[in-house]
């Protein structure tokens, strides 16, 4: 499936805010409300049976946090990258851990590292960090004894 065909297909199922091709992989920004239905459709109908990873990006200039879901199809060897934009102040999105089991731990990591709340997550506690460190991978994190690199 080419990137264009894939985009046409998912456009009928979800609200795509923006999309681009990056090194032959589709990057599609979807509305958070249609994320779950889109992933279920891609898993069941388009053969994307594998989630490689789920992570997040902090974009302080745009005041957004992007949650990134990288999907892979074992049958057609296609990849696709689905992103949702969340506000930095109230970063909240539905969990997809019941659709792809991979997302369970990855969402816990993204949650503790970026301060995202995954609604209905089965285990919302921290995965790695101690509870006193909050969202250290946000660009404006400063906490405890952390020293900034001199300019």
């Amino acid at each position: 499936m080419t990137v264009r065909e894939l985009l046409e297909k998912i456009k009928q199922k979800a609200e795509i805010e923006d999309s681009k091709e990056d090194l032959g992989v589709l990057n599609a920004y979807v509305k958070p409300s249609s994320l779950r239905s889109l992933l279920i459709y891609m898993r069941d109908s388009l053969g994307f049976d594998w989630m490689s990873f789920m992570t997040a990006l902090d974009m302080p200039q745009e005041n957004t946090i992007e949650a990134v879901y990288e999907l892979f199809s074992n049958s057609s060897k296609d990849s696709a990258r689905i992103k949702v934009k969340l506000s930095r102040q109230a970063a909240e999105v539905e969990t997809v851990s019941d659709i792809y089991r991979t997302a369970e731990w990855h969402e816990r990591e993204a949650a503790e590292m970026f301060g995202i709340t995954f609604k209905n997550h089965p285990h919302p506690e921290n995965l790695i960090l101690t509870p006193d460190i909050k969202a250290p991978l946000r660009k404006d994190f400063s906490g405890g004894d952390m020293k900034r690199m001199p300019e």
Partner: peptide, 10 residues
Amino acid sequence: FIYDSYSVVM
């Protein structure tokens, strides 16, 4: 890890 590290004891 002396700079920009949130998790390391110095």
